[in-house]
Simulated scan of single mutants.
Amino acid sequence: TEEERAFMYERYAPDPKMRKNLGIRRRLAPLLGGDRRKIELLNGLLLSLPGSPILYYGDEIGMGDEYLLEDRDGVRTPMQWTEGPGAGFSDAPPQDLYLPLVTDPAYSPEKVNVASQVDDPGSLLSWTKRMLHLRRRHPVFGLGSFLALPTAKAPILCFLREHGPERVLVAANLSSAPVDVPLPEVGGSWVDAAGTDVVWSEAAPLHLEPYAFRWLVPAEG
């Protein structure tokens, strides 16, 4: 609706130059204020909702944008491979690059680049790789049905993906406060698909920190 679009613009694109046609021409990281929790949450939902997930180049490392450039060029700046000259994208002089590098200090190549993240297990790039590997281990995300599940907690999004014998339960906290979530009416006991010791059952509510999410599978036995 027009009201929803107005809210979206006010919240995520207050400067009219951030908008294009009816959409927003910004990258995910600056759109979310660089909040790692929110970036992971939205990518986690992207990878678990029905449809084919598409990660735009650079979003796997949290690249920024140059929204003052014309058209959609603000999100087409050179990939930031290193912190060196040309961000490792090119050794051409800066004035000869097809588009300028990101200049915002929070997202510049000196701050955000592949080389600084590739060997860091705590980096956004490493986290993204782990999530992609985990998704590939669960074909249900690409083939399964989708069932939204009501919960007793308003800020919680919960749904079930199911394909043949495989079932994955997804729970996401969309709020800025921690929440203990009672198990919806799916029964049984569920454990974290990533292999942690998290358990969700009727006797054990699921604790979710702000903007956290979990993929859970039925406990064996």
Rank of each mutant, 00 (worst) to 15 (best):
S116A: 15
R135P: 02
M131P: 00
V140Y: 05
Q80L: 10
S176T: 07
G64C: 06
S52A: 03
R27I: 03
S201T: 02
R37W: 09
N21G: 05
L28T: 05
M18D: 03
L47V: 07
L149C: 04
Y211M: 08
Y98T: 08
A193Y: 03
Y67E: 12
P30I: 03
E202I: 00
E162R: 15
V118Q: 13
V198A: 14
L68E: 15
V191K: 15
D96Y: 11
E2I: 02
S175H: 09
L132W: 13
P109F: 10
V168Q: 11
W190Q: 13
W200K: 10
L46N: 11
G64R: 01
V140R: 14
L134P: 00
E40M: 15
G64Q: 07
S175I: 01
L45S: 02
E166R: 12
H207S: 11
G64M: 05
R76G: 06
L149H: 14
L124T: 01
V170C: 02
D192I: 08
A203N: 09
V191L: 09
R214N: 00
H138P: 02
A172T: 00
R5E: 10
F146D: 00
A152T: 10
D180V: 04
P178Q: 11
L206N: 04
P184S: 05
R136V: 02
Y98W: 13
R76A: 03
A6E: 13
D91E: 11
W127P: 02
F159A: 00
L124G: 00
P205K: 08
P94K: 14
R214E: 01
A154F: 04
W190H: 08
L46A: 05
S175R: 03
R37F: 08
A154N: 06
D120E: 12
S176P: 05
